[in-house]
Deep mutational scan, measured.
Amino acid sequence: MKVTIEENEETGKFTIKVKTEDGEEKTIEIPKENLEEILAKLPPNVEII
């Protein structure tokens, strides 16, 4: 699983794009305050880009 994290400076939010092993892609946008909480919940086999 690969996770790409991009900061949107205009909105102050982060866009998180997840690509699973089977090629499925999902995108979510979260507030900056929630980034550490989300990262802590990721499984250890995740590659963060």
Rank of each mutant, 00 (worst) to 15 (best):
K26T: 14
L35W: 07
D22S: 09
G23F: 02
E25S: 06
P44E: 07
I28E: 04
N8F: 03
I38W: 15
A40E: 06
I28M: 11
F14D: 01
T11C: 12
E47Y: 09
P43K: 05
N45M: 07
N34P: 01
K26Y: 15
L35H: 01
T11I: 03
V46I: 09
I16Y: 05
E25A: 03
E9C: 15
P31S: 15
G23R: 00
V3F: 08
V3K: 01
G12W: 06
T11E: 07
V18G: 00
I38F: 15
N8C: 08
D22F: 10
E24Y: 12
E9Y: 12
E25Q: 05
L39F: 05
E7N: 05
T20V: 05
K2Y: 13
T4P: 02
E36K: 13
E37D: 10
E29T: 12
V3G: 01
N8I: 04
G23E: 03
E37Y: 13
N45F: 09
T20Y: 15
P31F: 14
E6I: 14
E36L: 13
L39D: 00
N8E: 03
L35K: 01
E37G: 07
N45T: 07
I49K: 05
V3S: 01
E21W: 14
T20Q: 07
I16V: 09
P43D: 05
E21Q: 11
I28A: 03
E7W: 15
E33T: 06
I38E: 13
N45P: 05
N34R: 14
K41C: 15
F14L: 14
K19Y: 15
E24N: 11
P43R: 09
E36V: 09
E33I: 05
L35G: 00
I30R: 00
I28Y: 15
A40W: 06
T27F: 13
K26S: 12
T4N: 03
T15L: 10
E29R: 05
T27I: 14
P44V: 09
M1A: 06
L39G: 00
I38G: 00
E33N: 07
E47K: 09
V3W: 13
K2L: 08
V46R: 04
E6K: 05
E6H: 09
I48R: 03
I48K: 03
G12E: 03
T4R: 07
K13D: 09
E6Y: 15
I48W: 14
E9Q: 10
G12C: 11
V46D: 01
V46T: 10
K26M: 14
T20G: 10
V46F: 09
E25P: 02
I30A: 04
G12K: 04
L39S: 00
I48P: 02
P44A: 09
E7R: 12
E10D: 12
K2Q: 11
K17S: 07
I30N: 00
E24I: 11
K19A: 08
P31T: 13
D22P: 01
I16G: 00
E29Y: 11
M1V: 08
L42R: 01
I49L: 09
I16E: 02
I38A: 07
E25G: 02
K17R: 11
T11L: 05
G23V: 00
L42S: 00
K19F: 15
E29Q: 08
E21M: 10
T4Q: 05
F14N: 02
P31E: 13
M1F: 10
V46H: 05
E33M: 06
E9M: 12
N8T: 03
I30T: 04
T15Y: 12
E10Q: 11
K13P: 01
I38T: 08
E10V: 11
L42A: 01
V18H: 02
M1I: 11
T20C: 15
I16N: 00
E47V: 12
I5D: 01
V3E: 00
L42Q: 00
T15E: 05
P43H: 08
V3T: 01
V3D: 01
E21H: 07
V46E: 02
T27A: 05
E33P: 03
E10W: 11
I16D: 01
I28V: 08
E47F: 11
T15M: 09
I5A: 01
N45C: 11
I48S: 02
E6R: 05
E7G: 05
L42N: 00
I48G: 02
G23L: 02
I5G: 01
I30E: 00
E10H: 11
I16Q: 00
K26P: 01
E37I: 10
E10S: 10
E37H: 08
E37P: 04
L42I: 04
T11Y: 04
E25R: 02
E24A: 07
P31Y: 13
K19L: 14
E33C: 08
K32Q: 06
E21N: 09
K41P: 00
D22G: 07
E33R: 06
I5C: 07
E33K: 06
L35Q: 00
I5H: 01
L39E: 00
E6M: 12
K17F: 13
V46Q: 03
E37K: 09
T20L: 10
T27K: 05
N34S: 12
L35M: 06
I48N: 02
P44S: 10
E24W: 12
P43S: 09
I49M: 09
K26A: 08
E33S: 08
E37L: 10
L39K: 01
L42W: 06
